[in-house]
């Protein structure tokens, strides 16, 4: 029996073949070439060595150096995500209370838009020029007789790198979280008050639960942003490879150990796994906390 045009449309699962769909083709092409294919390459190459299937690359991940780097990467990412989320969240609330079309709000949001993308070598250099051994602020502090005697802290992953990461994490949080904070309706606070609640009640029972899914989502974004950051850390840390992205780069560029490229891909696979675990936790939390959201 010949199918009617209507049943033909249904066969597409309800998607209407229209010109509008053509607009997303470049997006899918882009993500296929620069995300899907590289991920597949990483996954396959992690199990291949000299053209043969092997678990050797994955087994190599068990060495102490990589495990330490992985632990440090996770701690650094989690710390900068949590500190960035809390500070950026408070900043977003402060900005949301400013006049909507006021100069203060426009200035801060524009500035954060720039700072959130201001990572990499330029940022590292800015910090070295300020806090390095010959840095401007270091010199002032030295003159004033305050501050640490050494500037080595700037090049350590849990001190200087953490501080530098916060420089782009906090503005990123503000940009991502501000729309959610601005979505809080004044009527909710007023309704809480007329029903006998206090400001604290409003935050605890109304605002925080409403903001929670967005807050967790933004924190996750900050985590992955820090977890995958490379250039900033690479510019600051020249000794050892305390973070996974630096280790991966090392497997491709090392002049002392050759043939480690596929171990690097196995390391990248480990990063994919970490992000997948974080995403799974997020999905679970999101499902529990946002049943009320329009889906």
């Amino acid at each position: 029996m010949a199918k009617s045009p209507r049943s033909g449309t249904r066969a597409l699962g309800g998607i209407k073949p229209s010109g509008a769909l053509a607009g997303v083709v470049p997006f899918f092409a882009y993500t296929t070439v620069f995300l899907l294919i590289p991920t597949l390459v990483v996954i396959i190459a992690a199990f291949v060595s000299d053209g043969h299937l092997t678990l050797g690359n994955v087994r190599a991940l068990g060495n102490a150096g990589f495990l330490t780097a992985l632990k440090q990467s996770i701690i650094l990412s989690a710390l900068t995500a949590i500190i960035g989320a809390v500070v950026g969240g408070i900043l977003a609330y402060a900005v949301s209370t400013a006049r909507p079309d006021g100069i203060l709000k426009r200035f801060i949001t524009s500035l954060c838009g720039v700072l959130a993308q201001f990572g990499g070598v330029a940022l590292a250099f800015a910090f070295i020029a300020s806090f390095g051994a010959q840095g401007m602020i270091s010199a002032w502090m030295k003159k004033a007789g305050v501050g640490p005697s050494s500037t080595l802290w700037l090049y350590q992953w849990d001190k200087g790198v953490l501080l530098v990461y916060l420089y782009f994490q906090i503005p990123l949080m503000l940009i991502v979280f501000l729309p959610a904070v601005e979505g809080l309706r004044p009527q909710w606070r007023e309704a809480t008050e007329t029903l006998g609640g206090t400001t604290w009640t409003y935050w605890r029972r109304v605002a925080m639960p409403i903001l929670f899914p967005s807050f967790v989502g933004a924190t996750l974004l900050l985590f992955t942003n820090a977890f995958s950051a490379y250039a900033t850390a690479a510019a600051l840390v020249s000794q050892a490879q305390p973070l996974v992205p630096l280790q991966i780069a090392g497997t491709f560029t090392s002049e002392t150990v050759l043939g480690q490229a596929n171990v690097g891909k196995a390391m990248a696979l480990a990063m994919v796994v970490v992000v997948a675990i974080v995403m799974t936790i997020y999905a679970w939390l999101d499902k529990r906390s946002s049943k009320w959201l329009v889906r």
């Binding site: 309706r185 009527q187 909710w188 007023e190 309704a191 008050e193 007329t194 029903l195 006998g196 609640g197 206090t198 109304v206 639960p209 409403i210 946002s290 009320w292 959201l293």
Partner: peptide, 21 residues
């Protein structure tokens, strides 16, 4: 007296229900 001590009930123009409840 603050609002929460006035013993009032109030219905707003719209969108005042707590969306997560």
């Amino acid at each position: 007296l603050p609002t929460n001590k006035r013993d009032l009930g109030m219905v707003f123009q719209a969108y005042s229900l707590f969306p997560h409840m």
